[in-house]
Simulated scan of single mutants.
Amino acid sequence: MILPTKYLSADRSLIVIGADILRVLNEAPRSVSEVWERVISTRNPQAAPLTYDWFLMAVTLLYAIGTIDIRNGLLAVVSGTPT
């Protein structure tokens, strides 16, 4: 689930979805809904469809490992995190 396996393609793994989220958050802190819309619009059309629950699991993973934080209601990359 976190990493791709022979049963889970890379575009469905949480680590790849998390990378997509970090790419969006590198520009500026954003609301969850804005990050969701940008990630959906920038994903490869050939990739497996991304559902909101998988997106939220990736956000939760990034928060749990200390890569992102919530500041004033916006998701932001923690300073000092390599991206």
Rank of each mutant, 00 (worst) to 15 (best):
L25N: 10
T5Y: 03
T5K: 04
S33F: 10
Y52T: 05
S9C: 06
I21D: 00
S9F: 09
N72A: 14
A47M: 02
S13W: 00
L8W: 08
T51M: 04
I40S: 06
M57L: 07
M1C: 00
D20K: 01
G80W: 06
L3T: 10
A48V: 03
P29H: 05
V24R: 00
S9G: 09
P45Q: 06
E34M: 09
A58L: 02
E37K: 13
A76F: 01
S9K: 11
Y52W: 09
V39E: 00
I65H: 11
I15N: 02
P49A: 14
I21A: 03
L8Q: 05
A19H: 10
L50K: 01
T5W: 02
T5L: 03
A47E: 04
T60G: 08
V77N: 00
T81V: 14
D11R: 02
L14E: 08
L56N: 12
D53Q: 13
L61E: 13
N26V: 03
L25V: 07
A58I: 00
L62Q: 09
D53Y: 04
S31P: 03
S31A: 13
A47D: 09
L61G: 08
L25W: 02
L3H: 13
I65Y: 10
T42S: 14
R12Y: 07
N26P: 00
V24E: 10
M1D: 06
A10R: 12
S41V: 05
D69T: 14
P82D: 06
P49T: 12
V24K: 03
T5E: 05
L8N: 06
T83V: 15
T42C: 02
I21P: 01
I70W: 13
E27G: 05
V77F: 02
